[in-house]
């Protein structure tokens, strides 16, 4: 059975994020009068994914290295995009990522007060990436770079839970059809299964968010349909937890979202007991 390997500090798994930083990301997001740009959504998506992944691994004594994390930006260049102390690194343990955000902002968040009401409470919000939009969209090159990085990582971790690649993009590659490079990436495997390639498609098109679809029926254009086709099917464990979390998924549901974030995916990973009432 695939995707059963225990994710632990002695047998960590890996996340590799690919972030589209091309010029087209300066277009407005989601159609209509939105002042937000696609690049703002990308920065939000990657910051929230990293934040939630770090929190998932956090314990009172620090961050447990259940995952190694890499980020590749693609636009003007295709290159590792972690900044500060992690600049130039292809991959870093999650503890190093969590301890080295570019800055930590103070934001207000509404939280339940325990008596049925809501109160505003200041929380610290880490920021690793700021919006960036310049150059072409060399998605094929980014997928090839991901292949090279993960091949090396898998050589060192042959029995790990397979790496998860999350590509955050507007889906409009300028260096050819990404399907061949994506198939090669999905073809990499540990003894526990193939690399999982998931896609977050942030579009200038208006339309309802689509999360983990099993068909292309609700997708608005060829770019969205093409990104769906590149995406791996959710594992059985992810599907089960997604169902418990209230998502409508089936055996063909893919790791793909349209105009939505993928923060829920972090909950779908099993690193030990997660109470059903933890929100």
């Amino acid at each position: 059975m695939s995707y059963q390997a225990e994710i632990s500090r002695s047998n960590p798994s890996c996340f590799l994020f690919l972030i589209d930083q091309s010029g087209s990301m300066s277009d407005p997001f989601g159609g209509g009068e939105s002042k937000r740009k696609k690049a703002d959504q990308v920065a939000d998506a990657i910051n929230r994914l990293l934040q939630n992944l770090v929190i998932k691994c956090a314990k009172e004594e620090g961050i447990r290295d259940y995952f190694h994390v890499g980020v590749i930006g693609y636009g003007d260049v295709v290159a590792p995009a972690l900044a500060g102390a992690l600049a130039g690194k292809e991959m870093a343990p999650i503890s190093e990522v969590g301890n080295a955000p570019a800055r930590v902002e103070q934001r207000m968040k509404k939280v339940e007060d325990g008596a049925g009401g809501l109160v505003e409470q200041p929380i610290r919000f880490p920021v690793w990436f700021d919006p960036k939009a310049h150059g072409a969209t060399p998605m094929c090159q980014a997928l090839v770079a991901a292949h090279d990085i993960l091949k090396r990582w898998i050589d060192q971790h042959p029995d790990s839970f397979p790496p998860i690649v999350i590509n955050i993009t507007d889906g409009e590659a300028t260096d050819g059809n990404p399907s061949t490079a994506a198939a090669a990436l999905r073809g990499l495997a540990t003894s526990d299964g193939n690399v999982l390639l998931f896609n977050i498609h942030l579009s200038a098109k208006a339309g309802a968010a689509v999360e983990f679809p099993s068909t292309v029926d609700a997708l608005p254009d060829e770019f969205a349909r093409s990104m769906f086709e590149l995406s791996s099917v959710l594992t059985a464990t992810m599907r089960n937890i997604a169902q418990q979390e209230g998502y409508v998924v089936d055996e063909q549901s893919r790791g793909f979202v349209f105009n939505a974030d993928m923060v829920a995916l972090i909950k779908f990973l099993d690193i030990g007991t997660r109470p059903s009432n933890l929100r």
């Binding site: 770090v54 956090a58 009172e60 620090g62 961050i63 955000p101 930590v104 610290r124 933890l278």
Partner: peptide, 14 residues
């Protein structure tokens, strides 16, 4: 607490 432990503590222990 560092930011991540504070965020985790806000979720409560179970």
């Amino acid at each position: 607490l560092p930011w991540y432990a504070e965020a985790k503590a806000l979720q409560g222990a179970y």
